Amino acid sequence: MSWKSFRFALIAAGAAMLASCGINSVPTKEEAAKAAWANVESAYQRRADLIPNLVSTVRGAAAAEEDTLTGVIEARSRATSIQLSADDLDDPAKFQQFEAAQGELGSALSRLMVTVERYPELQSQQRFGDLMVALEGSENRIETARVRYNEAVQDYNTTIRTFPDIVGAKVIHGAEPMQTFSAKPGADEAPTVDFGNEG
């Protein structure tokens, strides 16, 4: 074997080793997880954009429910003020703060929907019905985006923790695991439904 052939074989082997130690796979999977996060943010933004129209529609028909409406507006304000950039996805405290604010907004919307049940004239309005369909679609998009984000993060986190990619992840990229969405406390308990007659 000539020196030239040996050198070529050495370079090829070195390139193969580098390629298999996370040089490309870690940033590729990180970018996939960040793109999935952008979809989560987009879904949350769509929901936030619908809320002012929903609140103004309900306010016209249910002026007595001002506390509930104010709660929704305030929860939306808090949820939209907490921003979580793709660079913060490895920070558990920031991630939990963002998730808590979005959960609070979801709870406020649930209380609003319970309130709306008391106003049949509101439910019969076409505009309200359209807003409810749009809001339901937004909630479905949020759930789908969160699932896809969790899948992308699982793939990324597995990559940066397994050999040989862990070498490039730690030495070259300084990669840290990203956070995933998890179930809210109490989500494992079935809700109690009471069909008893009131009064």
Rank of each mutant, 00 (worst) to 15 (best):
E139V: 08
T70C: 10
E117L: 07
S138W: 00
N24W: 14
T28C: 01
R76F: 01
R118A: 15
A35W: 04
G71E: 10
A32S: 14
S110Y: 08
V55F: 03
Q45I: 09
E104K: 05
T70R: 13
E99K: 00
V55K: 00
E136L: 05
N53A: 11
V153K: 02
E143V: 10
E65Y: 03
I51F: 04
V26D: 01
A64G: 15
S85N: 01
D90R: 08
E66L: 14
E74N: 15
S124A: 13
A36N: 08
P120H: 06
T162C: 08
E65N: 12
K94L: 14
G106D: 00
P92I: 14
L69P: 08
S138A: 15
D91R: 11
T162A: 14
V55I: 15
A79D: 03
N140A: 12
W37G: 01
V133G: 07
A75K: 00
E66S: 15
L50E: 11
F95D: 02
T57W: 10
R111K: 13
R127L: 06
L109Q: 04
L135E: 11
L112N: 05
V26G: 02
A32T: 14
T159F: 06
S77I: 05
Q96F: 05
I51C: 00
R146H: 08
R118G: 14
I73H: 04
V26F: 01
S138M: 08
A61W: 00
Q123V: 10
D88A: 08
L135I: 12
E65R: 08
G71M: 10
F98L: 02
L89T: 07
G129T: 13
T115N: 09
R161Y: 00
Q96L: 09
T57G: 11
A38M: 12
K94G: 02
K29M: 15
E31L: 14
Q125A: 12
L50F: 11
A108S: 09
Q154G: 10
Q97R: 05
D88L: 04
E117W: 06
T158V: 12
T68I: 15
Q83K: 12
R118E: 13
T115W: 04
F128C: 07
L105H: 02
S110P: 06
Y156F: 15
N157F: 05
A62K: 01
E74Q: 15
T162M: 12
Q96G: 08
N157I: 11
T28R: 07
A93Y: 01
E74R: 12
T158H: 10
E99Y: 07
V153N: 06
I51A: 07
L105W: 04
